[in-house]
Design a protein around this nucleic acid. Structure first.
Lengths: 76, 76
DNA sequence: TGCGATTTGTACGTATGTATA
DNA sequence: GTATACATACGTACAAATCGC
């Protein structure tokens, strides 16, 4: 998995697409927690605000729900 | 108009409420442009990302639409 | 009970790119 | 060509909620 840094697609959108694909294929199963923002920051080598923006996309699409102090969960 | 810095309500939510009220009472008329992010930054004495977060709330509620390079407009 | 680690929430500042007028 | 305005992305700091010990 690589991100296209120079392309027109924003990083957060690319990351959101990767995460959405992982939800779709079961890499992140329903009702389970996805990696923390810090872990995703390290995996994709982007800043936390960018990771949070990607997760926001998932929430807007109804794919995930976030609980403060716990994490972000795949919508079951 | 003052903001409650110590209260539980986030700054961006308070600002969004103020802007929404201005839309509701006609201070910001339909189809007209609201002040720029920079102007709102100065008026509320907050950072631009905070202003942008407030405007995002207006967009999510369908109260405003943002056009890149032009400004944010009250939904007509 | 309390403390500490983890995790998300809020907010700041800054830089760069792109579109419009 | 310049100025204005929004979009993206970075980094940083501190607060608040949760959980395990």
């Amino acid at each position: 998995m690589t991100l296209d840094l120079d392309g027109p697609e924003p990083l957060y959108a690319q990351i959101a697409a990767v995460l959405a694909a992982r939800i779709a294929d079961g890499t992140y199963p329903a009702r389970r927690r996805i990696p923390s923002e810090t872990e995703l920051t390290e995996e994709f080598d982007v800043s936390r605000p960018t990771v949070r923006q990607a997760i926001q996309v998932l929430r807007d699409r109804g794919l995930a729900e976030t609980v403060r102090g716990k994490g972000t969960y795949v919508t079951g």
